[in-house]
């Protein structure tokens, strides 16, 4: 046991300096397309059509982004016409895609937002915030990103954010997954077991009701139908940094 203790002390600190400083390690976020202006309307339309989830909307010669629908597939990047929509005759040659116009991408992660008037937790609660995580039909990615938050790279305990197994002690309900039919009751019961004040943070495109899979009778079309949602974190999955930003918003410590 003492060996491990020593090992722990000797190991370098890997924890991010965020939110004090921006985290810019490569691969920390998948990035996102931002509204982009194109040469003309037809070019804008062509780029928007490459999006498989209709997250891009042409407006004249510009293309707007509905981030809640984005799955970071990268098909709208410049020079990347995407496998599925490749020209059958030219698709085999990767070089032929170079020069294809595309959306501008930004490698950030600050995209969580309030769905209502901002109403952060009251001041007394902000120093030590307890979070109950519920998976309501998630594919595993969002849940895994939430899991990373409690590991050394992000270590959100240092910010006074803690995971709690019991809803009775929780201040924030963090929900991932689309809200499947058979998880409806357990999710609602968890919510009802939480004492006021409570804030609901919802992470991931599926939980926002814009999954790749069109809603079926069981898959659910988002958590908003079931719970009063305060903060949403788009992303497919949102990287840990984005979820952290969402939690800080709800806790009243965000920008």
């Amino acid at each position: 046991m003492s060996t491990w203790f020593g090992w722990g002390l000797r190991s370098p600190v890997v924890t991010t300096a965020a939110p004090r400083r921006e985290e810019d390690a490569p691969g920390v976020t998948p990035g996102r397309p931002v509204p982009t202006r194109f040469a003309d309307e037809s070019e804008a339309r062509a780029v928007a059509e490459r999006c498989p989830t209709k997250a891009l909307r042409p407006e004249g010669s510009a293309v707007e982004v509905e981030l809640a629908r984005c799955i970071h597939c990268g098909r709208c990047r410049p020079g990347d016409s995407g496998g599925a929509n490749a020209d059958p005759d030219a698709g085999a040659d990767a070089d032929s895609n170079v020069g294809v116009p595309g959306m501008e991408w930004r490698a950030d992660y600050q995209w969580a937002r309030w769905t209502c008037e901002p109403r952060p937790l009251p001041r007394e609660f902000r120093g030590s915030v307890h979070i109950r995580v519920v998976d309501a039909g998630d594919c595993g990615a969002c849940l895994n990103e939430v899991h990373q938050l409690f590991q050394p790279h992000y270590s959100i305990h240092r910010l006074g954010l803690f995971h709690t197994p019991t809803p009775r002690k929780a201040d924030i309900l963090l929900v991932v997954g689309s809200g499947t039919a058979q998880m409806e009751s357990p999710l609602l019961e968890t919510f009802r077991a939480m004492p006021d004040p409570v804030r609901v943070v919802v992470a991931g495109a599926c939980a926002l009701g814009s999954a790749v899979l069109s809603p079926t009778f069981v898959s659910g079309d988002g958590v908003g139908r079931l719970l009063p949602v305060d903060v949403v974190v788009p992303g497919h999955p949102p990287p840990p940094m984005a979820i952290l930003q969402g939690l800080l918003l709800a806790a009243g410590r965000g920008p």
């Binding site: 390690a25 490569p26 691969g27 920390v28 976020t29 998948p30 990035g31 799955i71 970071h72 597939c73 990268g74 098909r75 990347d80 995407g82 496998g83 599925a84 990767a94 990615a141 895994n144 990103e145 990373q148 497919h236 999955p237 990287p239």
Partner: peptide, 24 residues
């Protein structure tokens, strides 16, 4: 996860495999 993000543009390697090959 970060290495995957660097290679594939996605931490969980989403969107890379397509019928007939790779998307990029």
């Amino acid at each position: 996860l970060r290495a995957s993000g660097l290679v594939a543009g996605h931490r969980y390697l989403f969107g890379l495999v397509v019928p007939g090959g790779l998307s990029r």
